[in-house]
């Protein structure tokens, strides 16, 4: 079983986000990137499958700041091969461009199964999974929380709103958008990551030119603005609490 996990890093929301002078993008000067949470689950699901049925897990990621540490950590978890796509990623890129870059490399790897995070908080032009499936001509199932492999097929457990769960069978190769791995992503001790840094190698592959066609054009990016209906309450904690209580009484909630 040849499992490929394409992942991306996203802005870390622990740091406050600011808009740059163009008014159309995030200011990247203070931005720190972190592995997309859902991609972390896709990695965990891939490792779980490998532990269950054997095979090889390859992680593919664009070369952005901090990617090496992320890749080495996946080796400590059990990934076999690391591919870093080197290209002009510093100026930002949309998911249409990323999916094209991913697909060019992944085609050559002849995958049986692709697992990727179902979404990311910076998916402005749709999530990577369906775009990638389109590029590769493979079926796609999103919001997957549970994967079982049978002979040449995969059964994906998909969550629907309202407490419904479906199990779907799809012929391999296929792309699955992972909502949650069957176990929470495991902890990797620092000593194991350090060991991986000494022993693992990251393969560099040149990414094709970024082609954002099909994506969105951003007109304006801005912080949430207080609408006319909103009243901002400021002051000491006790004053705020008292104001809230009186508001609730006015509204008939209390």
């Amino acid at each position: 079983m040849n499992i490929i996990v394409p992942v991306k890093l996203v802005p870390d929301l622990v740091e406050e986000l600011t808009i740059d002078s163009s008014g159309k993008a995030l200011d990247t000067s203070w931005l720190r990137l972190i592995l997309n949470e859902f991609d972390d689950h896709a990695i965990e699901q891939a490792i779980l499958l490998k532990e269950r049925i054997g095979g090889q897990v390859t992680i593919v990621a664009p070369d952005v700041e901090g990617i090496d540490d992320v890749l080495y950590t996946t080796v400590a978890k059990g990934a076999d091969r690391l591919i870093k796509l080197v290209g002009d990623f510093a100026g930002g890129f949309n998911n249409h461009a990323l999916a094209r870059v991913f697909s060019a490399v992944i085609k050559e790897l002849q995958p049986d199964l692709l697992l990727t995070g179902v979404q990311a908080h910076n998916d402005l032009d749709g999530s990577v999974g369906p775009l990638l499936a389109e590029q590769l001509g493979m079926p796609y199932i999103g919001y997957v929380a549970g994967v079982t492999l049978t002979d040449g097929n995969v059964i994906a457990r998909k969550e629907y709103p309202g407490g419904l769960i479906a199990e779907m069978e799809v012929t391999l190769p296929a792309v699955l958008g992972i909502q949650a791995a069957q176990q929470p992503p495991r902890y990797i001790a620092v000593s194991k990551v350090r060991q991986a840094m000494k022993t693992a190698t990251i393969e560099e592959q040149t990414a094709a030119e970024l082609d954002p066609t099909g994506g969105l054009t951003i007109g304006r990016m801005f912080q949430p603005e207080a609408g006319a209906q909103a009243t901002m309450i400021t002051g000491e904690v006790n004053e705020i609490a008292a104001r809230l209580v009186s508001f609730f009484k006015e509204l008939g909630i209390l």
Binding site: A189, V190, S191, K192, V193, R194
Partner: peptide, 8 residues
């Protein structure tokens, strides 16, 4: 139990 992290 995270001695490696302590060292870092």
């Amino acid at each position: 139990g995270e001695h490696g992290l302590f060292e870092v």
